[in-house]
Write a protein that binds this DNA or RNA. Structure first.
Length: 658
DNA sequence: CGGATCCCGGTTTTT
DNA sequence: CCGGGATCCG
């Protein structure tokens, strides 16, 4: 067997062409890109303007490193999504005609997660710990709030979503609760004491039950490096070359992680664009990118300023938009694509007229030979496209929507996964609570009883099953639940089989709980198909939490030519021949939430910059002048301040009447 | 425990 | 006006 294996390896090598320098780096890259690609040692900061070939640079650098003899496993590629890293790796692999699956790539969260699975026992984590997503956090907070007996009327105590946000900010922005309350929620300042209590409770509870939220992955990952010098040494020596993409969207914690990880060589290349920082709500700070040279003394700074994406008329507009930013770091984008249509600002009557106009323009461009998948409609918030979606269906325009869609957070998905989650981590109170509430005749009280048992040191799944079976006879549902869980606990079963078993059990419950049962059942079947490729339950559950499907497309695996609909956040890093931005109206974009905060408004401006810089050739900005709202009546919309009062030479303005 | 009722707020963006 | 959450009551 062993011989056979080495034989295959030999054969593989024979097929691979000798390592001739197939790539002419000087020819294929501009001077700035070339410099970034071929600088191997020391800290490098690449300021990469929109469309300046940032991904290309990273891909070529990957290829360059490997070609110059760096083993792929010594490279760590940190990106914003796993998809991004996979794409870069496959492009680099294609360039040098060599598989690169040994390169470790992914998000900060997934990399930290990997270490914690492996070394987490040093911090007291068992290998089966559970990762909490946003709605799990909410559920947990609700559970913890109860015994605190918080007496507060509506509006006097923050909602659980707000609390989760607050607690996240404490960690990601490194600010005390008091400051955050004073800054953002002065109305809750009287509750400071209670919130502190709840925070302590929340932290302790997570520890006791082997639960980690998104922030904990980073915090604990960092702690692993800080408190265990041997690990820090090992990992730092292993990852001799670190590349960080989208550095403008990292936060303080992530920056510190990079610094720790690079401590014994300082070979870090950070790539980003301060003008495209759009994740401050997650603790990202675009000043991070400015601080990089201070964190890594001796940093070489390289600017990529030639834009390869857009035409000059589009750049004229985007440059104007970002020039109005309060803080900007000089960077001047230019292009060689001089010719192209001017961007248009189109004002329609109603929202539906806006939708129809998009449909008409899409049809027109199609006639001119632009493929549907080369066009995208972008918007500030996911719900902004509802009307358009209806109109597209009517016109039979196929489309796919990205962002906003929280497949994983819908109740039926959470319900079904809970069966598997308690098998993977029997101490997971959130999933136990969910499951118990599904049983007729079981409510808060019964559920609480089991939840208190979870704290016991030696609590295992069998103890849970014993408890379920010991409940009073009338609660037949608990017995059949126990039966199912016992079945699921069979280690030889594949995750998909486990999920199917759970689905059989859950189907009748689904029927009684939801009117739209057929649709939800189909969702669940889709979920089962996604899971087919997994061999390990733990991996399945973690992947679903760390990289949830971003669109129904990921779930249904549809193919073909379709129009892209996307939130601007989900459009980051992408580009299309034609881009439509809808709802460019005050209150929608910029969002009314940021209306009275200058920093937030600046971020909205950067969002508009990101949106407009996605366009290669055609750019249409639309807004409806009138909106009608059932309970507010007719309201009039102002055009978004970011495109207001621009000269005609930059933006063609038109009023479109039906 | 769970159904009925009342009251408030009003869809940001995502790992 | 509709839905979620809290509260009340059988």
């Amino acid at each position: 067997m062993k011989n056979l294996k080495s034989l295959t390896t030999l054969e593989d090598q024979a097929v691979t062409p000798p390592l001739a320098p197939a790539i002419d780096y000087r020819r294929e890259l501009n001077p700035a890109q070339y410099e970034a690609v071929t600088t191997r040692e020391g800290p490098v900061l690449v300021i990469a303007g929109a469309g300046s070939g940032k991904t290309r640079t990273l891909v070529y650098r990957l290829a360059y490193l490997v070609e110059s003899g760096v083993p792929p496993w010594a490279i760590l590629l940190l990106t914003f999504t796993r998809k991004a890293s996979q794409e870069m790796l496959s492009r680099a692999a294609y360039l040098i005609d060599r598989q690169l699956h040994e390169v470790v790539g992914g998000t900060f969260h997934s990399v930290c997660h990997r270490w914690l699975r492996r070394y987490g026992n040093r911090l007291g984590y068992e290998s089966g710990f559970t990762i909490l997503d946003r709605s799990d956090q909410g559920d947990l907070l609700r559970l913890l709030r109860e015994p605190l007996k918080i007496k507060a009327g509506p509006g006097q105590f923050p909602r659980k979503e707000t609390i989760a946000e607050l607690f996240g900010a404490i960690v990601n922005k490194n600010l005390p609760l008091e400051t955050l309350l004073a800054q953002n929620y002065p109305q809750f300042e009287p509750q400071t004491g209670l919130l502190h209590q709840l925070y302590q409770l929340y932290q302790r509870h997570k520890r006791e039950h082997q639960l980690l939220d998104y922030d904990d992955l980073l915090v604990e990952g960092k702690r692993l490096l800080e408190e265990h010098p041997d690990l820090r040494q090992t990992l730092s020596e292993r990852y001799r070359y670190i590349m960080v993409d989208e550095y403008q969207d990292t936060n303080r914690l992530q920056a510190e992680l990079v610094r720790l990880l690079a401590f014994c060589h300082n070979n870090v290349m950070a790539v980003g664009d301060d003008s495209q920082s759009i994740y401050s709500f997650r603790g990202a700070n675009f000043r991070n990118i400015i601080d990089f040279p201070r964190l890594f003394p001796g940093t070489q700074i390289i600017k990529l300023e030639e834009n390869y994406r857009s035409t000059q008329p589009i750049l004229d507009l985007t440059n104007t938009i970002i020039a109005q930013a309060r803080e900007k770091y000089t960077k001047c984008l230019f292009t060689r694509k001089k010719e192209g249509p001017k961007p248009h600002l189109l004002r329609t009557g109603s929202e539906n007229e806006q939708s129809q106009l998009v449909c008409n323009l899409v049809a027109e461009l199609q006639e001119q030979g632009v493929a549907l998948h080369q066009m995208a409609v972008l918007f500030r918030a996911a719900f902004h496209s509802f009307d358009l979606e209806i109109e597209l269906l009517r016109h039979q325009v196929p489309f796919m929507k990205f962002g906003g869609f929280k497949f994983m957070e819908s109740a039926h998905i959470k319900d079904l996964l809970s069966y598997l989650r308690v098998v993977a981590n029997p101490r997971d109170p959130i999933s136990w609570n969910r499951l118990l509430q599904l049983v007729p005749g079981v409510g808060k009280k019964t559920s609480q009883k089991l939840l208190t048992l979870l704290k016991q040191e030696d609590f295992t799944l069998p103890s849970a099953l014993a408890w379920l079976n010991a409940q009073k006879g009338s609660k037949q549902g608990l017995k059949s639940l126990a039966e199912l869980l016992a079945q699921l606990n069979e280690p030889t079963l594949s995750p998909a089989t486990q999920l199917n078993l759970a689905l059989t059990h859950y189907e009748p419950i689904l029927k009684t709980r939801f009117d739209d049962y057929p649709k939800r059942f189909r969702d669940l079947e889709h979920l089962v198909t996604i899971t087919a490729r997994y061999r390990q339950l733990g991996n399945l559950l973690n992947d679903l939490t760390l990289e949830p499907p971003t669109s129904l497309a990921d779930v249904t695996q549809e193919r073909g030519d379709y129009l892209n609909l996307s939130t601007i956040h989900s459009a980051k890093g992408l580009e299309w021949e034609a881009v439509f931005i809808i709802w460019a109206a005050e209150g929608r974009f910029p969002s009314s939430y940021s209306q009275d905060n200058e920093e937030d408004l600046e971020e909205e401006r950067r969002l508009m910059y990101v949106a407009t810089t996605r366009a290669r050739h055609y750019l249409f900005i639309l807004f409806p002048a009138v909106s009608y709202n059932r309970y507010l009546g007719t309201t009039y919309n102002e055009v978004s301040r970011f495109v207001q009062d621009l000269p005609d030479r930059i933006l063609t303005k038109m009023r479109i009447d039906p």
